[in-house]
Simulated scan of single mutants.
Amino acid sequence: MNDRELINAALLWHTAHARRLAVGREKRRLDAQLKAGGEDGWSLQRSVQQSEAGRQLTELKLRELAALRELAKACARQREQLDVADVIDLDGAMTLLAAV
């Protein structure tokens, strides 16, 4: 396990997380528009869009959870390399020092 694999797993999770948040924002916007009512033709279109956003949100949640599981595995493998480590606090930033 190297740092590149850990970074890749973190970036995959972050991308999935950001996409899920964006779709969730869009779904909430559509929910608010439907709740407010409005023109009948647009209401039907918004209802279809809301349904599609809900489906996408469910799919993205599953992808995010899968990416999070991979990140957790990568973190565990990385942690195994640091058998005995010291934790120090420098200006509020936590740092792991590998044991020699």
Rank of each mutant, 00 (worst) to 15 (best):
M94Q: 12
K27Q: 07
V48G: 00
G38N: 01
R29W: 00
T58D: 08
A9E: 02
A53M: 05
D3I: 14
L65V: 14
A66N: 09
G92D: 03
S51Y: 06
R25Y: 11
G41R: 07
N8H: 10
R19N: 08
R4I: 15
A67N: 07
R46P: 02
V100W: 07
R29V: 00
A76K: 09
W42T: 06
V23T: 08
D86Q: 13
Q81R: 15
Q78A: 15
S43Y: 03
L60M: 14
K61H: 07
A22I: 01
A22H: 07
R46M: 07
H17N: 10
A22N: 06
L82S: 14
E64I: 07
I88T: 09
L34K: 08
G92P: 05
A22Y: 03
E59T: 13
I7P: 01
A76Q: 09
G38P: 00
R77C: 02
Q33M: 00
V84W: 05
C75T: 09
R79I: 09
A66Y: 03
T95A: 12
A76D: 12
R63N: 10
Q81Y: 15
L97N: 01
E52L: 09
R19T: 05
L82V: 14
K73C: 10
R63W: 04
R19W: 02
A22S: 12
V87I: 11
R19I: 02
E70T: 11
R4S: 15
A74R: 04
A10M: 12
Q56P: 01
R19E: 12
R55V: 13
A98V: 15
T58A: 11
A72K: 14
E52M: 06
W13V: 05
Q45M: 10
A53R: 06
R77D: 09
H17E: 11
L34N: 10
G54H: 02
R29G: 00
W13F: 15
R29I: 01
L65S: 14
D31T: 12
W13G: 05
L6S: 01
N8D: 12
E64S: 06
I7K: 10
L96C: 02
E26A: 06
K73N: 11
Q50E: 05
N8P: 00
L96S: 03
A66I: 09
R63H: 08
